[in-house]
Write a protein that binds this DNA or RNA. Structure first.
Length: 706
DNA sequence: TTTAGGG
DNA sequence: CCCTAAA
């Protein structure tokens, strides 16, 4: 086999460059197929990478010229080489090109040739394809391993740090995969560590400014780094492919021999179809996703699968952000977000979401009654030292939906990392580790508090970044921090912060809410633990949706283009499941009072205003919630006390509810004829309203509130 | 997006 | 709380 010969030659002279940590194609695992994986992977990867790069060039203004150039020349040579397989002269040229490797494992030269020829018509693509396929092929050659993420890492390392790998291949192993495996087995820990460092360094670097020798060798990393925030190749592996028309070329680069996963020429069609769906079908998709026990079906084709999987995942992290699929930085200054004084891990768990909020219902209510809207945050910032030890982190580095995390400044670096980790892991699956970069320097000391590390609200949070790093272990033991030590600071901090940061809130209603809040908090901690454990828990695959979640990215099943996007699943998966019913958050007495007060002043029918007034900072309350609550309040107030359930609402409040309800009902009737009068003056006139003595108290309440 | 109501 | 028709 001439190609093989060429391969050997090429490898022997090859100085292993720094190679990307992982290929995007990592997402796939053909565990069910016996077909020569090397072959498959090669093409698969080729296609994937091509798509990747294309998109890169499309959307990334940072595309690195130097690298591009290198790649370009490389690829051209390679291409040439590929095309003129028998041409010795050209061959020698190829030998210097690492990309020649792959061809050695292509058993169907004819087919390949064809592909290449086609590609030649589209120089851009060919470059992309050829340039990267060998690397990825190598990396990919070990996908049969069970632990995909781990495996990927290992492969990367090996490839990265050891050029001998190639030698081995050359040395007689006709199977690239075998070679890789062997190599990996013999790899030393030191090697691994070193390599991890390398990759870390790469991630730290600002992509746009990546320079020097690294860049030269980065090879595929160039693509990865070309985007400042991209620090997670695996993510790329998972990210949706581009669906532009050019993708059709990619298709051609995909082998057709594995009908189980991809390669069908109908592929492009499918992709397009999917894309359309992804647009129009937003609602539909959402609907499907919100169905309680639906789960991503594995029988999607390749790209579609990865795409939809990812999309769905992000989707159910945050229903409002399908666009997480996009590489865009998810800065979403939506109204809702702005209102969110207490941000949270928006995309990872609604329960977790309630963490800071539910801890202190008082905190979220009525604030604006005293302080003009918008001042709350700044006020909190001013008092950060004592009053608001919270630091909000806006993570934009990951190619994942934006994560907003709030933790106390006294939180340790380690616990922050873990928090981030959990959030991210839930999305991307396990096998990762979170690193922290502050002002370009890695923060390694996990025991420092954020304050000590210089991470505080006043600090320059812009210089804080998180990186996703491959975990060195198949299952990161450090994540099993079920032990109290790790959690205690968390708990303690929230005990402290439960108190409203702003003095304004001293005016908070006294209420029974402190107890419930504590309960909620505990509950959250529980959840927190579960979340921490489940994604990496290798023993209990049935617990939570963590397993399905992490697998969703890699599972490869027989495909059927016609198959529905989702498939029902047992009620097993609890938490991580897509958009479950929101966690129940009973209104506390304080909240009820705030609500009543707001309604007294604003009336019914203005639920948005009521919401803002009474729950501006309680993100978990929507105006629909508020309205519903009022509805139930009215109902509750109108029934016998014995029939009431749940937390008892003070009769006084119920009376006010009835009064206000009656009043505003009348008001609405009147409204038919005349324009609405100013609330305040209206309320002055309600004293004489039928069957209610409590009305007299309303004006005074208002006075005190305002 | 909000409102208004039924489920 | 959810879902949605209407506005």
């Amino acid at each position: 086999m001439s190609s093989k010969k060429r391969l050997n030659y090429g490898f022997s002279g090859y100085q292993s460059p720094v190679i990307p940590k992982a290929p995007r194609s990592v997402r796939r695992r053909h565990s069910h197929k016996n077909i020569d994986k090397d072959q498959i992977c090669a093409f698969e990867l080729l296609a994937a990478v091509a798509g990747e790069l294309l998109q890169e060039s499309e959307s990334s203004a940072c595309s690195n010229a130097a690298v591009g150039k290198d790649e370009l020349s490389d690829c051209r040579a390679i291409t040439k080489c590929e095309q003129l397989k028998e041409d010795k002269a050209v061959k020698s040229e190829c030998l210097d090109q690492r990309s020649c490797v792959e061809s050695a494992y292509i058993p169907e030269p004819a087919a390949q040739e064809q592909n290449l020829k086609y590609s030649l018509d589209k120089p851009n693509h060919i470059e992309n394809n050829v340039c990267h396929k060998n690397t990825y092929a190598v990396l990919n050659s070990d996908f049969s391993k069970k632990d995909w993420s781990y495996t990927k890492l290992e492969n990367c390392k090996e490839v990265n740090i050891d050029g001998k790998l190639y030698t081995k291949v050359e040395g007689g192993s006709s199977n690239l995969k075998d070679a890789c495996d062997k190599k990996i087995q013999t790899g030393t820990q030191k090697q691994l560590d070193d390599d991890v460092k390398k990759t870390e360094d790469l991630t730290v670097a600002n992509s746009c400014s990546v320079k020097g020798p690294i860049e030269k060798h980065v090879n595929n990393n160039a693509a990865i780094n070309s985007e400042s925030s991209v620090q997670f190749p695996w993510y790329r592996a998972v990210r949706r492919p581009s669906f532009g028309k050019q993708r059709n070329n990619v298709k051609l680069g995909i082998r057709d021999d594995d009908e189980n996963s991809y390669g069908s020429y109908r592929h492009s069609t499918n992709i397009r179809a999917f894309r359309q769906t992804s647009r129009i079908g937003y609602r539909r998709m959402r609907k499907m996703l919100t169905s309680r026990h639906w789960k991503v079906a594995p029988q999607l084709k390749d790209y579609e699968r990865s795409c939809s999987n990812y999309g769905m995942k992000s989707f159910h992290r945050n229903r409002k952000r399908v666009c997480a699929l996009e590489r865009c930085r998810l800065e979403i200054p939506s109204k809702r977000r702005k209102l969110s004084h207490y941000s949270s891990i928006a995309s990872y768990d609604r329960q977790a979401n309630s963490k800071s909020i539910s801890n202190s219902p008082e905190k979220g209510i009525k604030r604006d009654i005293i302080s003009p809207r918008g001042t709350g945050v700044s006020a909190a910032g001013r008092n950060h030292q004592k009053k608001d030890p919270n630091v909000k982190f806006s993570i934009k580095s990951f190619k994942v939906p934006e994560l907003l995390i709030e933790v106390s400044e006294t939180e340790t670096v380690g616990s922050l990392k873990r928090t981030v980790m959990e959030a991210v892991k839930t999305i991307l699956g396990s096998g990762l580790r979170v690193g922290m970069v502050l002002q370009g320097t890695k923060v390694r000391d996990d025991d420092r508090t954020l304050q000590q590390a210089g991470i505080c609200q006043n600090g320059n949070l812009d210089n804080l970044g998180f990186t996703l790093e491959p975990s060195s272990y198949p299952v990161s033991p450090s994540l099993h921090f079920k032990s109290p030590p790790a959690l205690s600071p968390y708990v303690a901090d929230h005990e402290l912060t439960r108190r409203p940061p702003s003095p304004i809130l001293e005016l908070e209603l006294p209420s029974a809410s402190s107890d419930p809040s504590k309960i909620k908090m505990d509950k959250h901690d529980e959840d927190y633990q579960k979340l921490a454990l489940s994604p990496t828990n290798p023993i209990d695959p049935t617990s939570d949706g963590a397993i399905p979640d992490s697998r969703a990215l890699v599972i490869v099943s027989p495909l059927n283009a016609e198959a529905p996007l989702v498939v029902p699943v047992g009620p097993k998966n609890s938490r991580s499941e897509l958009s479950q019913r929101r966690t129940r958050r009973p209104f506390s007495a304080a909240e009820v009072e705030a609500l009543v007060e707001a309604v007294e002043q604003l009336g019914t029918g203005r639920w948005r205003d009521v919401k803002i007034r009474a729950f501006e900072y309680a993100d978990h309350r929507t105006y629909v919630d508020v309205k519903d609550k009022w509805k139930t309040l009215v109902h509750t107030a109108s029934i016998a006390p014995q029939q009431r359930r749940g937390e008892a609402v003070p009769q006084e409040l119920l009376d006010r509810v009835l009064a206000a309800h009656a009043y505003w009902s009348k008001q609405h009737e009147k409204h038919h004829a005349e324009a609405p009068k100013p609330v305040d003056t209206q309320m002055q006139n309600i004293g004489a309203l039928e069957n209610n003595n409590n009305y007299a108290s309303i004006p005074s309440k208002m006075g005190s509130a305002i």
